[in-house]
């Protein structure tokens, strides 16, 4: 495997007395798409926020590009934070035009160019909506704006939290195509949280199953979906898991 982007060891995240994430070990490699699957409440989104340096773990080690960030220091380190970006499950768009939303992260970085914005809008079928306010967009359009806003930043790491939840097949296809393209052409490292195991199978080179905040299994997607090592993974893939 190639160089690691994330290296997690005995990582724990608690809210008050409730342990939400407790991982022994997990590595995310440069240029891969890793899917995190599991039932609701398994800790997938919390883990993604930890990887996004948006929250500090309660204990353990979290290395990002070889730098220990578990102490929360990275949250103040702008340069480090700007090596990644995240798309949330809800689009969380600003009350301004589609174009302004997509350009937002670039403007934060002092980049006034519009070329990347136009290109991202073109790729995600948003060009005709450029001047529309985001309040009038459909769910699928809003989520595509959210992805475009992250795409234009050209970060090394992209974290996606249920990017296609509740979307129709057309929008799912557009988003999946864009994700696949970013990974193939730019070797972007992508961590994808999804409830859709078919999507995980379609997109990810490796898939990990989380249950009750713990990592049950992480393996190449072909193995994960056809010959999983853990019986709980097999039950989850078959849809037999009761939760």
């Amino acid at each position: 495997m190639s160089e690691s982007v994330y290296q997690l060891n005995t990582l724990v995240k608690r809210y008050d007395s409730r342990t939400v994430v407790a991982l022994d070990s997990l590595t995310v490699y440069r240029g891969e798409i890793l899917a995190l699957v599991g039932p609701s409440g398994a800790g997938k989104s919390t883990l993604l926020r930890l990887l996004g340096l948006l929250e500090a773990p309660t204990s353990g080690s979290l290395q990002f590009f070889g730098r220990e960030v578990a102490n929360g220091s990275a949250q103040a380190d702008l340069e480090l934070r700007r090596r990644l970006t995240m798309v949330f499950q809800r689009p969380l768009l600003l009350n301004r035009s589609v174009q302004a939303n997509i350009a937002y992260g670039l403007r934060l970085r002092g980049d006034k160019s519009n070329g990347k914005v136009a290109s991202a809008m073109e790729q995600l079928g948003l060009s005709h909506l450029a001047r529309q306010n985001t309040r009038v967009l459909s769910g699928g359009e809003a989520q595509r704006v959210s992805l475009a806003r992250a795409m234009v930043l050209d970060t090394e790491v992209l974290l996606l939290d249920e990017p296609t939840a509740n979307l129709d097949p057309y929008n799912v296809n557009l988003i999946e195509t864009a994700v696949r393209k970013m990974n193939a052409e730019q070797s972007k490292t992508i961590v994808l949280v999804t409830h859709n195991i078919f999507q995980a199978h379609r997109l990810a080179q490796r898939t990990a199953l989380l249950l009750d905040g713990r990592l049950v299994e992480v393996s190449p997607s072909d193995v994960f979906f056809t010959a999983p090592a853990d019986p709980r993974t097999a039950a989850f893939v078959r849809g037999d898991m009761v939760y």
């Binding site: 926020r49 996004g52 948006l54 949250q75 702008l78 934070r81 700007r82 990644l84 970006t85 995240m86 949330f88 809800r90 969380l92 600003l94 009350n95 937002y104 992260g105 934060l108 970085r109 806003r149 992250a150 930043l153 974290l159």
Partner: peptide, 26 residues
């Protein structure tokens, strides 16, 4: 405002001051 908006702004690379200003504008 959405409770997760500030996290989203940070995830897009906003400094605390930039995030605060954006939220005020929102």
């Amino acid at each position: 405002l959405d409770s997760q908006l500030r996290l989203q702004l940070h995830a897009l690379g906003a400094t605390p001051r930039q995030a605060l200003w954006t939220m005020l504008v929102e």
